[in-house]
Design a protein around this nucleic acid. Structure first.
Lengths: 85, 85
DNA sequence: ATGTGACTCTCAGTCCGTA
DNA sequence: TTACGGACTGAGAGTCACA
């Protein structure tokens, strides 16, 4: 699994958990809407500062965005991976 | 604490735990020696693919390199944060 | 063995559209 | 609301000589 794709999936998953659109995340993070789209699709290769900005906007530690999926996001105790429901 | 500086400190700490020089890490990761130097000093803003290459060379998950220091690196059970000794 | 400035070239990141 | 394309500017990738 490519790292860009991995990050994209994590961003998308957490964003949806927040109930946000890409535009809202773009606003919160100060990044461009189309760039968020590119990142979620794994088409972009963001820098660590951008990763940090996304993480801050999403309210999670940056390291979470790099994790190999599966593992539930437990930190902050609020994310949890949408098991049905 | 700036994220670039943070990553730099993590890379340096783990590299030293391995007993490697910057040149050795450069060889293992396929990156240039002076580039490694720039990253460890927090002078560079690497992309996540570069971060992944470093993490692979160091034998740790990429997310570890973003962690806010302090916290011992427990994953893989091999790093542990050089408490004196 | 490492820090640093300067350099080239690729791509990160923005903005315009259309579907 | 999102995917995706093209075009653009600034910043990162990657390297070197020198300290």
């Amino acid at each position: 699994m490519d790292i860009c794709r991995q990050v994209g999936l994590n961003v998308q998953r957490i964003r949806r958990t927040r109930g946000w659109s890409q535009e809202q995340l773009a606003f919160e993070s100060g990044l461009h809407r189309t760039y968020i789209s590119g990142i979620e699709r794994g088409a972009r290769n963001p820098t660590i500062t951008v990763l940090k900005e996304l993480a801050d906007a999403l309210g999670v530690p940056a390291s979470v965005l790099l994790e190999s999926d599966a593992a539930a996001v437990d930190e902050e105790g609020t994310i949890a991976p949408i098991r049905s429901s």
